[in-house]
Nucleic acid binder design. Structure first.
Length: 256
DNA sequence: ATGCCTTAGCAACTAAGA
């Protein structure tokens, strides 16, 4: 079973790339981020025609997450995270599909730091970690998939110096990501490529793609029962080089 | 020190991204 994380950076602008990806890669589960669309504007007909059911948590203009499943309808368990009634960002949706618990996550960017956006990011990570702990207590196969906006290690970025002041690699961001892993989650890409050097994002600016100046921020975390079934992980990098590409590439894990 | 590029909203620009 192939499970994908894909930050599409606007589902309307990216629809040809997304449909092409569904047709070519035939993933079983796709967790989308940055839909940048209210639910009434989503291209549901096209997704359905490609053979996928979806559970959606949209928002006008920015954010927005979804879980797609090949040939079936994911059953929604939760939208949003507990712990902040004021938070109206669409950044979390959790579903049940193919016997798995699957969450699609769009973690706040947090720039500029320090500042209120960084504070929001760190608080959001703590709320996510609380939810993740509850999921582990269910002792089921579960996957937490998405754009975490965290560069976990120095070898997950093309240049530590270039990104040193960025919210994505501050010690506070890394510490919370490490705390999440320490609960018992397995970072699938890191397990497959322990030496780092694997990117999932390349900026649109300054020729980052052409220079291969990227970093790893899209992560697939496996609960112990999912990790027992782990068979592979990777990045479908060539989609970043295509016409009208997202700045993120589809990133995947396979489990038995 | 700043913009680089892209998307969305909305019709000339700003917000947001990372």
């Amino acid at each position: 079973m192939k499970i994908v994380s894909y930050n599409v950076n606007g589902i309307k602008a990216r629809l040809p790339r997304l449909i092409e990806y569904l047709d070519e890669a035939k993933p079983d589960i796709v967790c989308l981020q940055e839909l940048k669309s209210a639910e009434e504007g989503l291209p549901l007909k096209e997704i359905e025609a490609a053979g996928y059911g979806g559970a959606w948590h949209g928002q006008k203009g920015f954010n927005g997450v979804a879980v797609l499943a090949r040939g079936t309808q994911p059953v929604e368990r939760q939208k949003g995270l507990a712990g902040d009634p004021e938070d109206e960002h669409s950044r979390y949706i959790e579903c049940e599909v193919f016997g798995l618990v699957v969450a699609s996550i769009y973690l706040p960017n947090g720039n500029p730091q320090p500042g209120p956006k960084f504070d929001y990011k760190l608080k959001w990570m703590e709320r996510l970690n609380d939810r993740a702990r509850a999921l582990l207590a269910e002792e089921r196969p579960a996957v937490l998939v998405g754009d975490y906006n965290v560069i976990p290690n120095d070898d997950d970025v093309f240049s530590v110096r270039a990104m040193a002041d960025d919210a994505l690699m501050q010690p506070e961001s890394r510490e919370r990501y490490r705390a999440l892993l320490a609960q018992g989650w397995t970072d699938a890409l890191r397990t497959r490529f322990p030496g780092g050097g694997v990117w999932t994002f390349w900026d649109y600016q300054a020729g980052a793609w052409q220079r291969d100046a990227g970093f790893r921020i899209d992560h697939l975390l496996l609960s112990p029962m999912a990790a027992d079934r782990f068979t592979g992980a990777g990045v479908d990098k060539d989609y970043r080089g295509r016409e009208k590409a997202s700045d993120h590439a589809p990133t995947w894990v396979t489990i038995r």
